[in-house]
Computed example of a mutant assay.
Amino acid sequence: MTQTADIAAPRLGLTQIPLARGFVTVAASTIVLVILCLIFAPSAVSYGGLAGSLPFAAVIAIVGLGQMLVVQQGGFDLSLAGGVSLSVVMVTHYPSGDNAQLLPAVMIAFSLAIAAGLANGFLVGVMRLNAIVATIGMNALLYGVVFAVSGGVPRTTTPLLAQIAGGKTLGIPHSVFFALAILALVTFVMKKTAAGRRFEVIGANPLAAHAAGLRVRLYQAMAYVCAQLHYCVAGIMIAGITREPTAFQGDALLLPSVAVVVLAGTSLLGGRGFPVTTVIAAFFLNLLSQFALSVGVPFSAQTIIQALALVFGIGVYSIQWRRQNTIKEKSKMEDTDNA
């Protein structure tokens, strides 16, 4: 019994390494970046710089959490751009500057987000279509609605929405509070409820989950619905932060949403998600963009920076994964020798 416990203990420790390693990697990278900003680009971490950049970091965090839910099920949601843009258009064009019409516009935006999520979930989770193909088609459909509503012409946001989403309390942008509230909700549901644990189990091994009697297709479909709700909230935040948002606001968020999920350590093959690390990665990626702008890197190179961050995340966790396999193989050989 003692030998069995001694052998099992190291294995338990090894299974906990990826979570700690992912958090430490992102947190350490963020601290190093802050130090570099203090030395070479102080304006990026000044109060004025953070006050201007934190709202957009919060938006990236929100869409990143939504994309994380889909990636946990082994998929990708490329309809993010259309979902965000549609909510932006609905809460700006429908009210037409009238505060009284803002609530109906928000309700319509959420209704359309649920409908888009159900469509994606049905195509991917039930019909078993390829996630990339299905969500690209949905993205085109969403942009069709965007053009039908807006005609591609931007419109000024309502004063009430600008106050709610773009205002500040105690010097902190309201969008940051929204992002933290969503983070707390996602973390609680994913880590503290039975449904959340089933969700992660299904993402890690759908076949075993199905054999255990779990409703695999339902959970996979609901991942897309929850993701679209995240995109809708992000679009509403953008409409309040930006005085006159365009109909293409979601285009710039697709790559960052995937980058922060990968940087946080969520496997592209599905499985466990790391909400807190994803939010930290969103702050890191946004600060990295601000640092690059402050040192003279042109704005056109921002996509390249985000792509490099994505490649960095994939590379780091690929190396870690191989190291984990090597350690496990050595552990198995030692157990065999002891036996």
Rank of each mutant, 00 (worst) to 15 (best):
I108D: 09
S87V: 02
N120A: 07
V106W: 02
L103Y: 01
S111K: 09
L103H: 07
F122H: 04
L118A: 09
S111D: 13
D98R: 14
L123V: 00
Q72L: 11
F110S: 03
G74C: 10
M127D: 08
V70L: 08
H93N: 12
G66M: 11
Q101T: 07
I108H: 08
Q67R: 05
I60D: 08
R128L: 13
G66V: 14
A109Y: 04
G97V: 12
V84E: 00
Y94N: 04
L103S: 08
L123G: 03
V70I: 09
A100N: 10
R128A: 13
M90W: 07
M68T: 11
V126N: 11
M107K: 10
S79Y: 06
V91F: 06
A131I: 00
V88K: 10
A134Y: 05
I114S: 08
G117L: 05
F76K: 08
Q73I: 03
A113Q: 02
L69Q: 03
G83K: 05
P55N: 14
L129E: 02
F56T: 02
A119L: 15
N120V: 00
S79R: 03
F110Y: 14
S111Q: 11
G64V: 09
G97Y: 09
V106Y: 04
A116G: 14
L78F: 07
R128V: 11
G75E: 06
A57S: 09
I108L: 15
S96Q: 10
A100R: 07
V71I: 15
Q67I: 04
V126T: 14
A57M: 13
A116T: 11
M127Q: 14
I132W: 08
S87Y: 12
P95T: 05
A100G: 14
I108A: 15
L65K: 10
G64C: 02
F110C: 13
N99M: 14
Q73S: 02
L65P: 05
P95E: 03
A119D: 00
F110M: 12
I60M: 10
L65T: 04
S79E: 03
P95K: 06
M68H: 06
D77C: 09
V63A: 15
Y94I: 11
L123A: 14
G125A: 09
L118V: 12
V106P: 06
V88F: 10
V71S: 07
